[in-house]
Amino acid sequence: MAGDHNLLKVDPAIERWAHLRENTHLYFGWNKRNVRAAALWMVAVPVGLTILAYKTDVSLLM
């Protein structure tokens, strides 16, 4: 046991995923799918939450 350095098996799929995850800036490109997702998370979600907050605000009803 003193000289064993590889106690875990390395999964190539996980290693590839980790490499892509760490180097996203090299592999990312804007396309229709990414623009749609960005618009959803940067515009639609905040606007929807703001509308929900105003509709459920009790102090406006009194």
Rank of each mutant, 00 (worst) to 15 (best):
K9P: 09
P46R: 00
E15N: 04
R36V: 05
V45P: 04
A18V: 04
I14A: 08
M42G: 07
T56Q: 05
A44I: 04
L7Y: 10
Y54L: 12
T50I: 02
L49W: 01
M1I: 15
N31E: 08
L40R: 02
H19Y: 15
V45I: 08
L61C: 08
P12W: 09
G29Y: 14
N23L: 10
V47C: 08
A38L: 00
W17R: 13
V58T: 10
L61Y: 11
R16H: 02
V10A: 02
P46D: 00
G3L: 15
L26Y: 11
A39C: 04
E22Q: 15
A13G: 00
K9W: 01
N6P: 05
L7T: 11
A13I: 08
E15Y: 04
R16S: 12
R33K: 10
R16D: 05
A37Y: 01
P12I: 03
L60S: 13
I14W: 02
Y54E: 05
L40D: 07
A37M: 00
D4I: 15
Y54S: 09
R21A: 07
H19D: 13
V47L: 02
V43A: 04
N6R: 06
S59A: 05
V47P: 01
N23F: 09
D4A: 11
K9Q: 13
N34P: 03
V43R: 02
I51R: 08
N34Y: 05
M1H: 14
V58K: 13
M42Q: 04
L20A: 13
W17S: 09
W30P: 12
M62S: 15
T50C: 06
A44F: 09
